[in-house]
Amino acid sequence: MTPGNDDARSRQVRPGRSMPARVWSGVGRATKEPDRARTASIGAASRAHRGRPGEPRRVAYLYILPATAVFVLFVLFPLVRSGWFSLYDWDGLGTGVWAGLANYEAVFTEPGLRGAFLHALVLIVFYAVIPVALGLLLAATMTRARMSGLGFFRVVLFLPQVIPMVVVAVAWRQIYEPQGPLNDTLRAVGLDSLARPWLGDYTAALPSVGLVGTWIGTGLCLILFLAGMAKIPRELYEAARLDGAGRLREFFAITLPSVRGELSVALTLTVIAALKTFDLVYVMTSGGPGNQTTVPSYEVYNNAFLIGRVGTAAALALVLTAVVFLVTLVINRIGEKADE
């Protein structure tokens, strides 16, 4: 991709560090500075001289008012309310009964809800692990040759990321139909015994949903890693070759560390997509057959709006949010190490 990506990514991934050490006028930050007086005076001087746009401004509050108001009303407040709801036993209509942490207990002990998280783990393998591994492997074997015409392939390989998930689900449902293209192909090559109603099959349903995630993620990973590896200086490989390093050593010593940034981006996008899977399950299987393809998001919807367990749904949603936060932080660590 464009060379500027890495800066922007690291800006995003580690916001704390990207704060430039500008002195500004010292207001608000001055309390943290050891010699406050000097900082403030420098700030005052530069303000007097140049009137920089970084000077303290009350008008800033007006600028951030709409964004902040909308954010507080529609993100922060609902989040807090979810926490409140999660402590009650409520069917969405009558009056709620205080439940303490029972809903959270249910999330971790109830087989149906725990199962949803286990399914999410399986989906992570299909959405993230396989595409990333495949993308790394393919990109590493391809990267020796400078290739032209990559632009076209990039457009095509990235396409699955853009198409509405509901449309993807409709397309793949057709592929998995009992008389659909997948079974037709299997029968045509004499593998009739493998043909089955994929989404209705107890063992095949979850991997079938997962495979759609693999389809969505692989192209993304491939183009990310191709772009990352193209930036590695060839001299590194030549030096390694002189040292007698084999292809495997080369990969782990040079290639993999060089694309850590891309790896962290790819993992974040794909793992979060796996954890937040909803549309696909809703349209393709509705969690079935049985409970074979339920996922956390689907259970949030199901508990809150279909079976009237609002408290449980809220607790589940908050646990899911915590998992998303945690996973994002852990994966960003991978990218962070790259710059050390």
Binding site: F77, S82, V300, L320, T321
Partner: peptide, 14 residues
């Protein structure tokens, strides 16, 4: 980072 799932339950009832 907050997924829509975490907002939609409380939002709907409120």
């Amino acid at each position: 980072m907050v997924p829509a799932e975490a907002l939609v339950v409380a939002l709907y009832f409120d």
